[in-house]
């Protein structure tokens, strides 16, 4: 018998009385002013946020936010401040040293500041290896909580996806919060 079958047999042998699936009997958190809440919670997560006003150029905002940036990687149309198209790189290791990555978020979650990022570039390394991450997000795409997030139609349509809430951080040395553990040291969400 394979280990698999042995394990499954043991599970069936030791099985407990089936419990019915519970119904959630609570009203999850909701927010009355989504954009304001999202900006507030992004701040808690250590991220910046910018409301893109009509007529404003996103490239200008990126440049203004990261004036020192030399390499800006993006495959998004309209991001003409990009210096590199990451999809043209064979090896993701070549992304090491990227100053800013500009990517698109699918939706944001108001209760925790997460933005759902689906793999949209050839190498997902881009989301993590860049010193700074700029996420473009449609401000109408905000959900209240994780229940709504996972219930969005078509959510399961991804190969790799990540909820990102602010910059990489750690508190592993004496619980002192340090921004920039391995991933982006700075995250800016531009709400279009």
């Amino acid at each position: 018998m394979s280990s698999r079958d042995e394990i499954l047999a043991r599970l069936k042998q030791n099985a407990i009385k089936p419990e019915p699936r519970p119904e959630a009997d609570f009203q999850p958190l909701t927010f009355t002013n989504p954009v304001e809440q999202f900006q507030k919670i992004l701040q808690v997560a250590g991220a910046n946020s910018v409301l893109l006003e009509k007529g404003e150029d996103v490239n200008e905002i990126i440049r203004k936010t990261y004036p020192e940036a030399k390499t800006i990687a993006s495959n998004l149309p309209g991001i003409n401040c990009a210096t590199v198209n990451p999809d043209l790189l064979e090896d993701p290791r070549e992304l090491n040293g990227t100053d800013v990555a500009v990517i698109r978020g699918e939706f944001g979650v108001l209760e925790n500041g997460m933005v759902w990022i689906k793999q949209q570039t050839r190498h997902k390394a881009l989301f993590f290896i860049s010193e700074a991450l700029v996420i473009l997000l449609n401000r109408d795409n905000l959900v209240n909580n994780m229940h709504e997030a996972y219930a969005r139609p078509g959510f399961d349509d991804y190969g790799y996806g990540c909820f990102i809430a602010g910059p990489s951080k750690t508190a592993d040395i004496e619980q002192a919060l340090v921004i920039g553990a391995h991933g982006a040291r700075s995250v800016t969400v531009i709400l279009e």
């Binding site: 909580n145 996972y150 991804y158 990540c162 909820f163 990102i164 990489s168």
Partner: peptide, 26 residues
């Protein structure tokens, strides 16, 4: 995913007192 939503909401809040972990990778 409906079940997952419950645990993602609870995990980081319980563990480190954050609304979520920075990266919740799927």
């Amino acid at each position: 995913y409906d079940a997952l939503a419950l645990y993602v909401r609870l995990l980081a809040r319980s563990a480190t007192g954050q609304p979520s972990t920075t990266y919740t990778s799927h």
